[in-house]
Design a protein around this nucleic acid. Structure first.
Length: 418
DNA sequence: GAGTTTGAAACT
DNA sequence: CAGTTTCAAACTC
């Protein structure tokens, strides 16, 4: 029998596979070829927690006297204002040196373990969908540059997975409103936008080159109208006017993020869910509200995401449904599933690129998942048989997982799917 | 490239 | 919560 620890390690990995069945190609690449950049997909699959932002705002305000009327109760009461996560036990050894550079994993302190609301995993064969325990992702298995943070109290999630750049925003001390000069390049946008990551985070240059420039004129890029802001990016090489979504306006940016989260705690969550296990495509979490486009233009978020409208949509005159002749026509014209003639390729939008880069979801079939899980279990059993430590077992399993992903990617590449 | 259309986000 | 306004992207010409 395998030890409970090894089983848990396997469960952690396999849960990642099955919960997020529709692995994007960018994620695969990140796992197989770890890089310093976070893809849009990865970024979109993260959440920001308002309580963390509150705390960071307080820290910023205290450290830089930019309180704008905000009180820092922690400072007033003489409490240690170090963010709880700074001492939370999520320590892990990054899989790669790059990952190590990206991850600011704090040191282990057991006293704050309670911050991670975890329920011990149960044997999966006895789980009912309603009683699935929350399994904390092992940081070793997170995509490069991602970190775990505790979820807000009211959240349905026991944890959040944050991109490192968000994490760095929350936890760098003191709040680096103006990072080291060494963090900056000499180049910068005409409107003060930095080429570098928000905090000049060592070794992380996330997607500043692939990101599509926005053209905001009135929102200061601090509202969800701005794609950069909505994606959690700072503006870089954008054409925006009066941009505040940059290093120079860090406090404003935090306030804006907090405002968005206050208004909608899920504002930064992906709009398109993965759907039920086994489905190829997900559904729009909120649903669209189209009235005139028939949901067959990119105005429609469902259509843009290449998914059909669902019962959650409140659209009028929807033609984006299974069996719709108009939809078939559009598809025949190659404007829906076949991006080659769609505006998705004509326009270099972030979403369009995102779709261009997206792995054909069909490549992640149940068979593939099952085979992958079998490989991981075999590794776990092998490790147990050889009497390896849990750490060694985890390493073996992780390496096996990487090999599986490599094979998936290679197989997909061979089939022309990417 | 300018103008129009569209629907999400923000506001009242 | 519903109606209105604002906004930036998508689209058309």
């Amino acid at each position: 029998m395998m030890s409970a620890e090894v089983k848990e390690a396997v469960a952690s990995i396999t849960t990642d596979i099955t919960e997020d069945t529709f692995i994007q190609d960018s994620q695969i690449h990140e796992n197989v070829f770890p890089s310093q950049e976070l893809s849009n997909e990865q970024r979109s699959q993260t959440r920001i927690d308002s309580s963390q932002l509150n705390h960071q705002l307080e820290q910023c305000s205290q450290n830089h006297s930019l309180t704008d009327g905000m009180e820092n109760s922690a400072a007033m009461s003489g409490q240690d204002i170090t963010h709880p996560m700074a001492s939370t036990s999520i320590g892990s050894i990054p899989a790669t040196a790059t990952q190590a550079a990206c991850m600011t994993i704090p040191q282990r302190q057991s006293s704050d373990l309670s911050l991670l609301r975890m329920v011990p995993p149960l044997p999966q064969q006895y789980m009912s969908p309603a009683s699935l325990p929350m399994i904390r992702p092992n940081p070793s298995y997170l995509p490069p540059g991602c970190l775990i943070s505790p979820a807000s109290i009211n959240s349905n999630f026991g944890y959040n997975i944050l991109p490192a750049h968000y994490f760095s925003q929350f936890h760098q001390k003191p709040c680096p409103l103006f990072p080291d000069n060494s963090s900056f390049t000499t180049e910068s946008c005409s409107n003060g936008q930095s080429e570098m990551p928000f905090f000049g985070f060592a070794g992380t240059v996330w997607d500043s080159k692939s990101k599509k420039p926005c053209n905001c004129t009135k929102s200061q890029c601090l509202k969800l109208y701005c794609d950069c802001f909505a994606n959690g990016d700072i503006c870089s090489n954008c054409n925006c006017i009066n941009c505040c979504n940059n290093v120079e306006h860090e406090t404003d940016r935090f306030k804006a993020i907090k405002t968005c989260l206050d208004r909608n705690p899920e504002a930064f969550r992906p709009k398109i869910g993965n759907g039920k296990l086994g489905e190829i495509k997900g559904r729009h979490n909120k649903g669209c509200n189209c009235k005139r486009s028939g949901c067959l233009k990119n105005y429609c978020e469902c259509y843009e995401a290449k998914i059909m409208c669902s019962s959650t949509c409140k659209c009028i005159g929807c033609k984006n449904y299974e069996g719709s002749p108009e939809r078939k026509t559009v598809m025949t014209m190659g404007c829906y599933d076949d991006d080659t003639s769609s505006s998705l390729l004509k326009h270099n939008t972030p979403k369009a690129r995102c779709k261009q880069n997206r792995c054909p979801l069909a490549c992640i079939t149940f068979d593939v998942i099952e085979a992958t899980c079998a490989c991981l279990l075999a590794q776990a059993e092998e490790a147990e048989k050889e009497g390896y430590s849990v750490y060694q077992a985890e390493q073996m399993i992780l390496e096996e997982f990487g090999q599986c992903l490599t094979q998936i990617v290679q197989s997909t590449l061979k089939s022309g799917g990417l």
